[in-house]
Each structure stands twice: as structure tokens, then as C-alpha cells.
Write a protein that binds this DNA or RNA. Structure first.
Lengths: 221, 221
DNA sequence: ATTATTTTTTAGTCTTATCTAAAATAATAT
DNA sequence: ATATTATTTTAGATAAGACTAAAAAATAAT
């Protein structure tokens, strides 16, 4: 078994290394974890001793298959707990993360499998992120630009393409925030504007806006 | 907030001090927590610094009102999680303790209040122990050990003294469950075993068993 | 190619929670 | 009342995980 600290470092390395072939740098980890590079080096050695990562001095770390599997299992627990909090305990999407950070470290295979069943084996968490299965496999998130969605599709606003302050200020003014659930109500062929429902309001946004907003697709309920 | 270790010590002191006016001794705590007396002394000082207990050298500790409240809140969480595990996640009563020991340290008032509501504000955990309310108050059960009942007395099995999984599994094997109606048919002076009627079966149980089963007495009819 | 800068590692310190061994105090027995 | 025994505390050590400051290695700039 691993300590709380080991699990948190491993999880960070897992996330940072997801979309890159090369190793994750010490500084990257330190920045993400709000700690010092020297602390990271210390911990990396421990993770390496436990075969969770491969470490070469000054070359960063690469997660092993074993490490990836272990990390995916922690992520699985985190996201299942998030679903539980939203679906069963009336949490809103922005309240769940902190509590899930604690719950993800609870050790009990039976607990997490039964929880999975209670929730009806969900495939995504409240933020639209995929939930790994017991083997650590999952379907990577489908991320689309709002402009490419069809009528009826819904999802969650997760990022912007153009991160200029004008655009971000516009989003603020329209009360469009990261994490907001968005549903496409209609599309206007004349100017390619899009009618959306967001946070219980209806809104029409221009094609330019819609081409700069990333949406995580929500399948099913 | 308190560390995991502090919470565990406090909980032990709370339980050990429940039925006594005098302080809880260092050795008592050490024995219960499977640790050394010197470690207990160290921790006691920390708890004292945080006003959770009153400590006088060589005189043991007494829990403060603040400490009792804090401990009761941990116990509340422990027992609510136990109910959750049994009611919602198909755990049996002998499987819940270990997991609840982990879950009781999760920090989120909203989580525990919502969990309470989800479970319908239960008053007892799966072992029959009372669940403190938010203020730390609870109604202690009017209960007797089976071993102390006289012939003819009857009641309902509502709790256990020893909640080790061996004992709980034994009860399961004998099909003795919480809520079962029990009547004392006879007592054997030779070995102090007791003949009981339970769920339409007749059964002889040893004195050791009878000394670990709590019965709520059925007065009248 | 040799500086300069940035990144990473090492070395040493601190805190928390544990331990062992020894000293201090309390309780018990004669 | 004093000696013996048991309990509790202190002192010093260890391991995990964090830190600071300085050294070493890699990267970037001239």
C-alpha cells in the first residue's frame, strides 16, 4: 500500500504525463503540487523504489504500467465519489472536488465496486471527465468546439481556444463560466449564431464565440 | 483541525472515559491503541495543548466538553458511514468497521449532514450503538446482557459488546441478527450456558456469547 | 565554445509520530 | 514505614515528508 503523499504525487505525475511521451519534469510536478523541487526529488526516489515510476537523474520521471494502473484506480475512486456526491448528496459540481480529494484515498475494493453499482456504473464524472474501469481503461473525453455541436447535444464548458482577455471578459459578462452546463437549443443558418441554454438561462452566441469555447460532451444522463 | 492520529487518540479516550468519573490512564490508552505508554504521553500533551483533554502528570486524562463534542462528532461520522455501508452498499455488519475507521476522518460537514438525510436520520448503527446528533447528544439504549436475563424474560437483540468480526461472523452463522426477538427458555448451572428461543428456533449459547449480546427488554405481554 | 541562466539534486534542518531505555513517581506488600 | 513492583514520564533515536541553501548538471545565449 501507498501513503497519502505517495498517492498524491503519483496522481499528479499521471495527469501531467497523459499527453506526452517524454518524462515529466521535477519543476512541473513542484508547480502543480505547490511544493518545492527538492521535495519532489525526494518523493520521486521513493516512487521509483516502489516501481511506480522510472527515474533518471535530471531527466524527469516516466510512469510505469504498474504506476499508471495504480493512479487510474485513484482517479476512478475520485470520480466515482464525485458522482455520488452530486447524484446522492445534493452537492453541486463545484463543491465536489475538495471532498473527493479526501475520499479517493479510502482503501476498500468492495466499497468502490459497490459504489460503482449503486451509481449505475457511470462513465463520466460531473465535470464530464471519464471514469476508468477496474482495469484502468476509459474512453478519453470527447472535447468539441461549441460551434460543432448539433441541436440537442449538451456538455460542459471546459476551456477556451482564444484566451485573450477580451474574450474572457466577454464570457464573464455573459456569465459563461468554466464548468457551466450548456445545451444547444438551436442554430441560426443566417449568421451561424447558436442558441444555448446555460445555467437556466437562454442565450444566443455568435459563431465567433462558439468557435472558441470547448465543450465536453455529456452522453446519456 | 486535528490530525488523524489526534482524532484516533481522542476517540479512544472518549470511549474509555464514558462510564467513569476518574481520568483515563496512560496504560489503558496504550493497550487499546496497541502502542507504547511513552507515545501516549507525548500525544496527551498535544491534545492538552489543544484543550481537548485536561492532563495532570501521573494522573491520567479527562476529556473536556470541547473534546467530548469533537469525539462525539467523529463517532457520529463513523456510525453513519456504517449504516450507509450496510444499507446502501450491501456490506454485512462484520465488514463495516475497518472501512468506517477510514471514512470517519473525512472532513466535510455538508457531506455528513446529507448522508444523514439520505439514510433517513438513523438513530442506531448496524451494531445497535446510538448515533450522536450534530450536538453530540444521543439516547443511550436501555439494554441488558443476555447473560443477565432470567428465565422467561424476552427482548430484542440490539447490540454487541465485542464487535470483532469473529464474533459477528459467529452470530451470522447462528443466524442471530440485530432485531431478532429472543426469549430465555432455560439456564444451565453446570456451564452457565443459556437456552434461548430465537426466530422460531431453539438454541443453546455459551456464557461467553451471552455476555456479549445486548438485549432490549420487552416489558409486559 | 565558453558564459550565463535555469533546472535539478544534494546536504542539512524541522516537525510529527513513533520507538527504546532509563529515570521518576505512584501503588502495593510486607 | 520502607521495600518492592507497576506505572508514567523523560531523554534520545528513527522515519516520513517537508523545507532552505548550496552544489551540480543541463540548457540557453552570446
Amino acid at each position: 500500500m501507498f501513503t497519502l503523499s505517495e498517492e498524491n504525487y503519483l496522481k499528479t505525475i499521471y495527469h501531467l504525463g497523459l499527453n506526452s511521451e517524454i518524462g515529466v519534469s521535477t519543476n512541473e510536478i513542484a508547480k502543480k503540487m505547490q511544493t518545492k523541487a527538492s521535495s519532489v526529488t525526494d518523493m520521486i526516489k521513493k516512487l521509483s523504489d516502489k516501481d511506480l515510476v522510472v527515474y533518471k537523474k535530471y531527466k524527469g520521471v516516466k510512469i510505469t504500467d504498474f504506476g499508471r494502473n495504480t493512479a487510474a484506480n485513484i482517479v476512478r475512486k475520485h470520480r466515482l465519489w464525485e458522482v455520488f456526491l452530486v447524484e446522492k448528496l445534493n452537492f453541486s459540481w463545484d463543491e465536489v472536488h475538495e471532498v473527493a480529494e479526501q475520499l479517493e484515498h479510502i482503501k476498500s475494493p468492495k466499497l468502490i465496486n459497490e459504489l460503482d453499482a449503486l451509481l449505475g456504473f457511470p462513465k463520466q464524472d460531473p465535470h464530464g471527465d471519464p471514469i476508468p474501469d477496474k482495469e484502468g481503461n476509459y474512453h478519453p473525453l470527447e472535447k468539441k468546439l461549441l460551434a460543432t455541436l448539433s441541436i440537442g447535444e449538451k456538455g460542459i464548458c471546459i476551456g477556451v481556444n482564444d484566451s485573450s482577455s477580451e474574450f474572457l471578459q466577454f464570457l464573464d459578462k455573459q456569465k459563461i463560466a468554466l464548468g457551466n452546463q450548456i445545451k444547444v437549443l438551436g442554430k441560426e443558418p443566417f449568421d451561424d449564431s447558436i442558441q444555448i441554454q446555460i445555467a437556466n438561462r437562454e442565450l444566443s452566441v455568435s459563431n465567433k464565440i462558439a468557435s472558441n469555447l470547448y465543450i465536453k460532451i455529456h452522453h446519456g444522463s
